[in-house]
Amino acid sequence: MNQIIRKNPTTLAAPVGEYSHVTVIPKNSTLYTFSGQIGIDQENRIPESHTKQVENTFKNIKKALESEGLTEQNIIKVNIWSVDEIDWDHFYIVWSEMFPVNPSMTIAYISALGLPEIKIEIEILAAKVD
C-alpha cells in the first residue's frame, strides 16, 4: 500500500455527511498536524458572519497545506468545532470545493472558542506518502 485509502466499511451505517469512516495511512508516511484554523482574514479581522468565517477558515487551511507542499488530497482527518449552528447547505458548497475526497471527520457544537468573536475552528491532520 503506497497511498492514503479512505473507506466506509459495510458493517457500519453510511456516513451522515461527506466524510469517510476510516482513513488508512501507509507505513513510512510523514504525518502533519495543524493547529485549528479560524475565520481570520489577511488583515487580522474576524468577520461577524458565521458563513464568512467558514469561507476564511477553509482559505487558511489551504494556505497552511500549501506552506508544507501539501494539497487537500493529503488531509486525513478534520475536526470541526462551532459555537453556532452550521448552515450545512453553505458549508458543503465550500467543503466540496476544498475536499475532492472525503477525509475522516468529527463535528462538535461547543459553548465557546478561544476568543468571543470566533464562531468556528477547524483542525486538520495530513499525511504525505514517502
Results as ranks from 00 to 15, higher is better:
residue 8 N to S: 13
residue 9 P to F: 06
residue 9 P to R: 11
residue 9 P to S: 04
residue 11 T to S: 14
residue 11 T to N: 11
residue 12 L to M: 14
residue 14 A to Q: 12
residue 15 P to S: 12
residue 17 G to Y: 08
residue 17 G to T: 09
residue 17 G to W: 07
residue 19 Y to A: 08
residue 22 V to R: 11
residue 24 V to L: 15
residue 25 I to E: 08
residue 27 K to H: 01
residue 27 K to L: 04
residue 27 K to S: 00
residue 29 S to L: 07
residue 30 T to H: 12
residue 31 L to C: 02
residue 32 Y to C: 03
residue 33 T to K: 07
residue 34 F to H: 10
residue 35 S to P: 10
residue 35 S to L: 09
residue 36 G to Q: 02
residue 36 G to C: 10
residue 36 G to W: 00
residue 37 Q to I: 00
residue 37 Q to F: 02
residue 38 I to M: 13
residue 39 G to H: 01
residue 40 I to R: 09
residue 41 D to I: 02
residue 42 Q to C: 03
residue 45 R to V: 05
residue 47 P to T: 03
residue 48 E to W: 00
residue 48 E to Y: 04
residue 48 E to C: 00
residue 51 T to I: 10
residue 53 Q to L: 00
residue 54 V to K: 01
residue 55 E to M: 08
residue 58 F to K: 01
residue 59 K to I: 13
residue 59 K to F: 07
residue 59 K to M: 07
residue 59 K to V: 10
residue 60 N to F: 11
residue 61 I to N: 05
residue 61 I to M: 15
residue 64 A to Y: 00
residue 65 L to D: 04
residue 65 L to N: 04
residue 67 S to A: 15
residue 68 E to W: 05
residue 68 E to F: 07
residue 69 G to Y: 08
residue 70 L to W: 10
residue 71 T to S: 15
residue 72 E to Y: 02
residue 72 E to C: 03
residue 73 Q to S: 14
residue 73 Q to P: 01
residue 74 N to T: 09
residue 75 I to K: 02
residue 76 I to C: 06
residue 78 V to Q: 08
residue 79 N to W: 07
residue 81 W to G: 08
residue 81 W to E: 14
residue 81 W to R: 12
residue 82 S to A: 15
residue 84 D to R: 04
residue 85 E to Y: 09
residue 86 I to Y: 04
residue 87 D to P: 15
residue 87 D to L: 01
residue 89 D to Y: 08
residue 90 H to N: 14
residue 90 H to E: 13
residue 91 F to I: 04
residue 92 Y to K: 05
residue 93 I to C: 04
residue 94 V to G: 09
residue 97 E to N: 15
